[in-house]
Write a protein that binds this DNA or RNA. Structure first.
Lengths: 209, 209
DNA sequence: TAGATTGTTAATCGATTAACAATC
DNA sequence: TAGATTGTTAATCGATTAACAATC
């Protein structure tokens, strides 16, 4: 049994993966823990410890083989496992995320968008249809049949004042994870996990520290 | 001299602020550390400790006065201090962030966007003009005169493969902070601070843990 | 009063950094 | 060989949680 990777290590490993993609682009074959650590301004033993979690190993005196390490990280973090999501709120941010090509690169597929604005219903965003939020239950079960995969992730991009109400509507669906981009703290049952993207908090942390 | 608030506390305080905004909307006058902690599923002494950093105090047996605590957090985190930013990359995400009203609520003002696509140059996004990236130096100094405030923040929303090159162009400007939304790790001089928003890392952390 | 809640100190826990033997 | 680098253990640091006296 492989042991779980702590959240902080997951985030760092994703950054290592960005660096390794760059190595591929530039035909760099090997990279050392010190080089990675230098780019991220962290400790090199941190890097080696994180890498050890991915069941791969480097070579003394040489470092890690970039392509191999990249694959190991993809495996460990499940980049290749397809994940399906709904976007709740087809405003500027919601539509931008639906069009965001990076998500596809990392296995996240946007299945549909939902909104309440009649002008938006039935429009397409990057080939995905916008449905009225009242259709959530219906689509949720239909998509289940079509993909043979439940949609368990909701990306919440409604205005802050509407966030709690939207979260409550999600209880009708098969959603288990809410990725919350709104400036609101949600109150949901224990079986639903919420991740607060908290853009303003990140921003303030960044400029104040 | 007020002591600096640690990054993790800044992020939590921002979440408390969201909750307090909700209290205002619902005319709730008082809130206890236990109530806040319950919503965020954290420890109540954590909440009290964070609040203590904001030079305000609650009342035994009653909790905190919501409006007062909200103000104290705004003061401590500098929500009212205006901050100006450029957006580098007027693609979907860049344009969405330029239109994002939440930023304005927290004092972040987008002054201009930059891109290389001729079709985008001179268009307006939410009333802000898109300039060619080659104009960066010029606009950077001009805005300085107009606002009597340097633009020190760049929000980087170009494709990952273009990120490093864009970051290097920023060295010509007065930018001190790069809020990096791209899937790339940047290599910049020590006097520039980079915050990796790392959306994919956040997402993977969330779904794997 | 009894019960609830703050503010803060002490204890615990986890994450980061230092150190170094093993290796090529 | 000498120098560089990994993998891992031990030491340090910081953040979270527990506990409780003070207070209303």
């Amino acid at each position: 049994m492989v042991k779980a990777i702590p959240g902080k290590a997951v985030k760092r490993l994703t950054l290592y993966h960005y660096i390794l993609s760059d190595c591929t682009r530039q035909n760099v074959e090997h990279i050392s823990s010190q080089q990675i650590a230098g780019l991220l301004q962290i400790d090199d033993s941190q890097v080696r410890k994180d890498i050890a979690l991915c069941q791969t190993s480097g070579r003394t005196n040489v470092g890690y083989k970039a392509a191999e390490l990249k694959k190991a990280i993809e495996q460990a973090l499940g980049f290749k496992e397809k994940k399906s999501a709904f976007i709740i709120g087809a405003g500027n941010l919601g539509r931008a995320l639906a069009r965001h090509t990076d998500f596809q690169d990392y296995g996240l597929d946007i299945v549909a968008l939902f909104d309440t604005d009649p002008a938006k219903i039935d429009t397409l965003v990057n080939g995905r249809k916008v449905f009225h939020i009242s259709e959530l239950f219906h689509i949720s079960t239909r998509e289940n049949l079509v993909n043979k995969q439940k949609v368990e992730i909701a990306i919440l991009t409604v205005p802050g004042a509407a966030a709690q109400k939207s979260a409550e509507l999600l209880l009708q669906s098969q959603i288990k994870y809410i990725w919350n981009f709104t400036p609101a703290v949600l109150s949901v049952p224990d079986n639903i996990r919420v991740y607060n993207e908290n853009l303003m908090g990140n921003f303030l942390d960044f400029t104040k520290n």
